[in-house]
C-alpha cells in the first residue's frame, strides 16, 4: 500500500468514528422511545471503540502477537494498550446494555408505554 492510500484510510476511519458518536448522540437527544435511546448509546459505544483502536494504529504495523524467530519485531507492532482497554470496554458495555434493557422491561410492566413523555410518575 502506498502512502496516499494509508492517508485516505486514516481520515476515513477517523471521520467514521466521529460521525458514529454524533449520530448516536442525536438519537439520545431527540428520540422519545426508550429502546431507541439504548440503541443510540450502543452506537456511541461502537464509535468510541473504533476511535480508540484508530489512535493505537501504526502505519504498516502488525498485530501485537509474537511468533518464533520474530521476537525483536516489537517496533513494528501496533499499540496493544488500547486493544486491551477496548476488550474490557466491550464486555462492560454489554453488561450495561443488559441492565438498561431489563429496566426498560420493568418500566413497561408498570406504565404500558415506552415513550418518556408519558411516563410521568418520576416527576413530582
Amino acid at each position: 500500500m502506498d502512502d496516499n492510500l494509508l492517508k485516505i484510510l486514516e481520515i476515513g476511519v477517523l471521520s467514521t468514528s466521529v460521525l458514529m458518536i454524533l449520530i448516536g448522540l442525536y438519537a439520545v437527544l431527540t428520540k422519545r422511545s426508550l429502546i431507541k435511546i439504548v440503541i443510540g448509546l450502543s452506537i456511541i459505544d461502537g464509535g468510541i471503540h473504533l476511535l480508540l483502536i484508530t489512535l493505537g494504529y501504526l502505519k504498516r504495523g502488525t498485530a501485537p502477537i509474537f511468533s518464533p524467530g520474530y521476537e525483536h519485531a516489537a517496533d513494528k507492532m501496533v499499540d496493544p494498550v488500547p486493544q486491551a482497554l477496548v476488550l474490557t470496554a466491550i464486555v462492560i458495555g454489554f453488561a450495561v446494555t443488559a441492565v438498561a434493557l431489563s429496566l426498560i422491561i420493568r418500566l413497561y410492566r408498570h406504565h404500558h408505554t415506552l415513550e418518556i413523555d408519558e411516563i410521568k410518575t418520576l416527576k413530582w
Binding site: P64, I65, F66, S67, A74, M77, P80, V81, Q83, A84
Partner: peptide
Amino acid sequence: VKDFYLDKTVSQLHVANTVTSIV
C-alpha cells in the same frame, strides 16, 4: 508503556499474545 509491555511480554513471560499478557 507500550514498549515496556511488548518487551516484558516476550522476554520475561514468554507469552506470544501481548493483549493477553496485558489483560
